[in-house]
Design a protein around this nucleic acid. Structure first.
Lengths: 130, 130
DNA sequence: ATCGGTTTTGACAATCATTATCAATAACGG
DNA sequence: CCGTTATTGATAATGATTGTCAAAACCGAT
């Protein structure tokens, strides 16, 4: 049975409060700063659970770190992520979805998975950088 | 100045000989098995250089490992990769390319980069798995 | 409210890929 | 062939993530 602990809730809340994608390390650090004595391993486990249940999205940053984000829409979708501040926009991508599936099928590949994410600088950060 | 060492050439050759994407670790291991005394750090450096010069493609596997592949066509392109054996097909993706750029622009994002790769089981591995 | 079995936690060690260090070596122009 | 200087490679360092396991917390039943 799946138990309801304040730790899992804390991770859930922290994710909801975050503007965009965050790493497990960062999330743990900010929870600690807020006074929570939660352990690092627990944060990793909670995030993995959330991702497994579809309550959070996970992706790999360009540097290879695993990032997580609270996921409002239950369905499958992709993201437009600011490289600088982490702000995220959820993207509708049915076309691309179908393109990926069709491409895999055309070459006889089965069990297709895909990684489709767009990184960039959001308007605010673009202004700052220029 | 950029020097021409047998080590760099060995990495280049090993990449050319590989069927699909390989990790730096694997490449180093197979070079060692072939009798080459090349060092691990050197393999990493050579791969980073090749990727920087556009002579190799690099991407992150679903597990987060960095993978490299000799890159024939100089242009920008994407891949369909077998999760099991690493066999790779280069994909034409102009449509998706433009979709990514347009999506970024529509939301005011600048300096767009994207990660678009499809993983699956190639025909041969599909057969084996069933 | 208490009990008991079971899950979860958390400090710490272990793992794994990758990068930094730095003295020894080798490449290239002269 | 020589000297300068980039490159190598053994090893240590880093940093994220996962495994371990005893102690603590959760929850349904009493």
């Amino acid at each position: 049975m799946k138990r309801n602990t304040w730790q899992r809730q804390a991770v859930r809340d922290a994710l909801d409060g975050a503007a965009g994608f965050v790493s497990a390390q960062d999330l743990h650090a900010s929870l600690r700063e807020s006074g929570s004595p939660i352990g690092l391993a627990t944060v990793y486990r909670a995030l993995a659970d959330l991702a497994g249940e579809g309550d959070a999205d996970s992706l790999q940053s360009i540097e290879g770190e695993s990032l997580y984000r609270a996921c409002a829409s239950g369905g499958h979708h992709h993201h437009l992520i600011c490289r600088s501040c982490g702000t995220t926009v959820e993207i509708e991508a049915d076309d691309v979805e179908q393109w990926a599936a069709a491409t895999a099928a055309r070459h006889g590949f089965t069990a297709p998975q895909h990684v489709i994410d767009v990184f960039g600088l959001c308007p605010a950060c673009s202004r700052k950088a220029s």
